[in-house]
Simulated scan of single mutants.
Amino acid sequence: MLLRRLFIVAATMALAACATTRGDKQIWPYPEPPIVSYPAPASEAPSNSNVGVGAPVVTPPQTAEAVSGEAVTALMRQARAALDAGHPDQAASSLERAIRIEPRNAFVWSLLGKTYLAQDNFVQAENVCSKSNALARGNPYVQLDNWRTIRAARAARGDGAGAAEAARQVDALEQSLSAYPAR
């Protein structure tokens, strides 16, 4: 009887130690990157606003390595190597694993869109890049890559008007990037 009670107490303590409280949930092995909105450069700020005058322009991350964990970075390297070698199916497999680890990483979704483009899956490429744009939260570096992929996908589908709209987005993003300080 004493042994049974000890077992129940030990099991209860083990479960209590493993339990998480609401709001304290940890994602293992890597937490998802935070959702960050990046301020527009000073050249795009409203002229009648005194907010942020003299404040430095925060440059958003330009690469996945700046916001990704080691596992995702390694999977993205594998995917890029597979794409360069002409194996988009292997690249897609690596990127889908990376998405399971960091589902809100806009860089991973963007590279997956390029992979779908290489597979001639134009509708999926455009959809994935649109999702990446939503996750990018104003990061023009990610959005520029996404709009280039969308432009190519629309052109390949024969959607001239859609490709022209995507080209306008590319031009606007390239202009806005000139306002950020060079690294």
Rank of each mutant, 00 (worst) to 15 (best):
Q90E: 11
R77S: 14
N105M: 01
T115I: 02
E70P: 07
V67Y: 01
T12I: 11
R22Q: 11
A125R: 06
P56W: 05
E32C: 10
T12F: 13
P61H: 09
R77P: 01
C129E: 08
N127T: 11
Q90S: 09
D24R: 11
V123H: 13
V57C: 05
Q26D: 13
I27F: 11
Q62L: 08
P46Y: 04
G52L: 05
Q119F: 07
I99K: 07
Q124R: 14
V51W: 05
S93Q: 13
G52I: 07
A92I: 00
A92N: 01
G69D: 06
K114P: 00
A17F: 12
A85S: 14
P103W: 01
D89R: 14
P88M: 09
E32G: 07
T20P: 01
S47T: 12
C18T: 08
V123G: 08
A92S: 09
L75R: 04
M76I: 00
P31I: 03
R80C: 02
P46Q: 03
R77D: 14
C129T: 10
A66G: 02
A17I: 10
D120C: 10
K114R: 15
K131T: 10
Q26W: 07
E126V: 02
S37T: 10
L83E: 03
G23F: 03
T20F: 05
G23Y: 03
F122Y: 15
Q124G: 01
A64K: 01
A19H: 06
A14V: 15
Q26T: 14
A45V: 10
E70T: 11
E44R: 12
A42T: 12
E65L: 05
C18K: 09
A17E: 08
Y38G: 07
A82T: 04
I35A: 12
A92R: 01
S110N: 09
I27Y: 11
C18S: 13
A19E: 05
A40P: 01
S130F: 06
Y116Q: 08
A125M: 08
F122W: 13
N121L: 08
N121G: 03
Y116H: 10
R80N: 08
G52N: 08
Y38M: 05
R100A: 12
I27V: 15
H87W: 07
D84G: 09
A82V: 04
I99Q: 05
P46I: 00
S110T: 12
E44G: 00
R100M: 07
T21F: 15
S49K: 00
N127M: 09
N50K: 11
A91N: 03
Q78V: 07
K25I: 14
L111V: 04
D120Q: 15
T20Q: 15
T12S: 15
C129G: 06
E102Q: 09
E32Y: 14
F122D: 04
A118Y: 05
S110F: 00
M76P: 00
S47E: 14
N48W: 13
L95N: 03
A79D: 10
M76Q: 03
Q119R: 15
P103R: 03
Q124K: 15
C129I: 05
E96Q: 11
S130G: 10
A40C: 02
R104K: 12
E32I: 15
T21S: 15
R77V: 12
E65F: 05
F122R: 04
V53L: 11
Q119V: 06
Y30K: 05
R22A: 09
E65R: 11
G69S: 07
H87G: 00
L75I: 03
V58S: 10
P29T: 06
D120G: 00
A55I: 13
V123Y: 14
E65I: 04
K131S: 06
N121M: 10
E44I: 02
